[in-house]
Design a protein around this nucleic acid. Structure first.
Lengths: 223, 223
DNA sequence: CCCCGATGAATGTGTATTCATTCACAGTGA
DNA sequence: TCACTGTGAATGAATACACATTCATCGGGG
């Protein structure tokens, strides 16, 4: 039976409304938490401040999440989600695996830049998370790595990249993308903007791993 | 007048004793804090736990440090100090700049490994530090980088390494050494031990930055 | 008029910091 | 040698505060 037909319409409608409200509240609260993580880089994110940011009462938070960890986890998850969405989108349709690797790295860095403080908090607030929560985040992080890893693997198979270890190479690129947030103070002091950073790291790490042949055929990518 | 002569011997002795006690207490407390940072990786380090670990009362901590930040700062400083001591020691006497770069990177990684949890806390507890404290740590971090940076510069001058940017290249190596602590869960899941990690990163990052000539002359370093 | 989403003051806990008190001992006078 | 005393190191219970979590209460729509 399709929901919304005569039989018990009242109940169905109520259920739909309730589900819609629940979903809306979830978004509202998680967005507030994410916004706080992004804004209040230094201070810690309290339930009181999340409630204030979301424009609701403290008590309401507990109607939709069972504790602070759930909210934090959802907010971090949302940050990671941005990666899983943007990276594949950025490399879709790019044939050449070296170009794809470069584009994936760029997309990673740009996504990190958009949520710079939140990424730092991902490292900092991890102490407030349970083991299960941490495991979940680790799983998601590896998940975000896959498109990049795939591109690197393809490039290795095509003998365009010859890193000592493809897996580690991809992970290094992930680390260096995160580092744009973690070590932003350093790059800023060096007067490196995001584009400078991406260009330099691309040449330093990816360019250096090119095979002898790719060094000729793909030189134009590292102007 | 030389201290310890007749005139006011009592006062001088008292001053010396007092200075010695102060120094000893400082070490005792900071060592306790550092030990806790290393042991209790997950839990936060409280004044109560520092006092317990040091075998003194909570109140005493405030006789020798004006607040928690000072203790934390001293403990982190001690960790960083390990770097400034061990890295130069490890590369002393090595002539070839590529070998020196490799040895410096290895020393960094080994120092990080020895204080793995404490290094992670350096990132985590930074939220508890004032701007001035953070600045101090940043300054010290750049200081630890210098020997490595020097080796890289020498290698570049000798046309053995040709990174896109020498400064960034050295900093990347620092980041990857730190990452051994930050991302230990990942490398562990990949069954990479410290020596594997050092060897692979050396080949992946340093080996890839070799000049065409060095690729021949220094091949033996990347077996 | 009742249901239930929403409220926010109250509660409990962890922890940084303080302060009244204790304690060990060196100096002093007999 | 011994009793007395002033000094400052050390103590740890008490305080203050931030913050996660709870719950008695409210109020508007069905």
């Amino acid at each position: 039976m399709v929901p919304g037909t005569v039989a018990s319409e009242g109940k169905d409608v109520a259920a739909v409304v309730s589900a819609a409200r629940t979903s809306a509240r979830h978004h509202q609260i998680v967005n507030a938490a994410a916004a706080l993580m992004q804004t209040r880089g230094s201070t810690s994110v309290s339930m009181q401040s999340i409630a204030a940011e979301a424009g609701v009462s403290v008590g309401l938070l507990y109607k939709y999440f069972s504790n602070k960890e759930e909210i934090l986890l959802a907010a971090i998850s949302q940050v990671l989600n941005d990666f899983t969405v943007r990276v594949p989108q950025a490399i879709g349709g790019i044939e050449d695996p070296v170009e794809r690797t470069i584009a994936a790295f760029r997309a990673f860095c740009e996504a990190v830049d958009d949520q710079r403080r939140a990424v730092v908090l991902t490292y900092r607030e991890s102490r407030a998370l349970s083991q299960a929560g941490l495991d979940e985040i680790k799983r998601r992080e590896i998940e975000t790595l896959q498109p990049l890893r795939q591109a690197v693997d393809d490039a290795v198979r095509a003998e365009l990249l010859v890193p000592a270890d493809a897996e580690l190479f991809a992970y290094d690129l992930l680390i260096l993308a995160h580092s744009w947030a973690l070590k932003h103070w350093y790059f800023q002091s060096r007067d490196l903007g995001l584009d400078d950073y991406i260009a330099l790291q691309t040449r330093t790490i990816i360019g250096a791993a090119l095979s002898a042949e790719a060094r000729r055929t793909h030189a134009h990518l590292f102007a």
